[in-house]
Amino acid sequence: MSIHEQGGGFGDPDAVKEHERKIDLLKHKQIQEVSKSNNRIAVFNIVIALVNVGIFIYQVFYRK
Rank of each mutant, 00 (worst) to 15 (best):
F56K: 08
R40E: 10
E5S: 11
K17M: 04
V16I: 09
V53S: 02
K22N: 10
A15R: 09
Q6E: 13
Y62A: 13
V47A: 11
F56L: 15
N45Y: 03
K64F: 03
K17Y: 06
D14P: 00
I46D: 07
N38I: 06
K64T: 11
K22A: 13
E5N: 08
Q59S: 05
G8C: 04
D14L: 12
Y58S: 07
Y62R: 13
D12V: 06
D12W: 02
I41M: 07
Q30D: 11
I3S: 10
R63L: 11
L25R: 09
V51W: 03
H19L: 00
N38K: 14
L50V: 12
N38L: 11
I55K: 06
V34T: 08
I31R: 13
H28V: 03
F61V: 05
V16K: 03
V51C: 07
M1C: 09
I48Y: 03
A42L: 15
I3T: 10
L25C: 02
L26E: 10
E33K: 03
I41G: 01
D14M: 10
S35V: 12
G54M: 07
A15T: 01
I41A: 14
H19I: 00
R40A: 14
S2H: 07
Q59A: 09
H28F: 07
F10T: 11
K29H: 02
F56D: 01
N39S: 15
A15P: 00
V51I: 15
K17C: 04
L26I: 04
V60A: 01
K36F: 11
Q6S: 09
I31H: 02
N45M: 10
G8Y: 02
E33F: 00
R40H: 04
R63E: 13
I23V: 15
V53C: 06
K27F: 05
F56G: 11
S37Q: 14
G7L: 02
I23E: 09
V53G: 01
F10P: 02
L25A: 12
D12T: 00
Y62D: 10
F10Y: 12
N45C: 12
V34F: 07
V16P: 01
V51N: 03
S35P: 00
I41N: 04
V51L: 15
E5T: 10
E20K: 12
H19F: 13
H4C: 11
Y58H: 10
E5Q: 12
Y58L: 11
Y58Q: 07
I31F: 04
S37M: 09
Y58I: 05
F56N: 04
I55Q: 01
V43A: 14
S2Y: 08
D14S: 08
V34K: 14
K27E: 09
V53I: 15
H19K: 12
S35W: 07
Q30C: 04
R40Q: 13
D12I: 03
D14T: 01
Q32T: 08
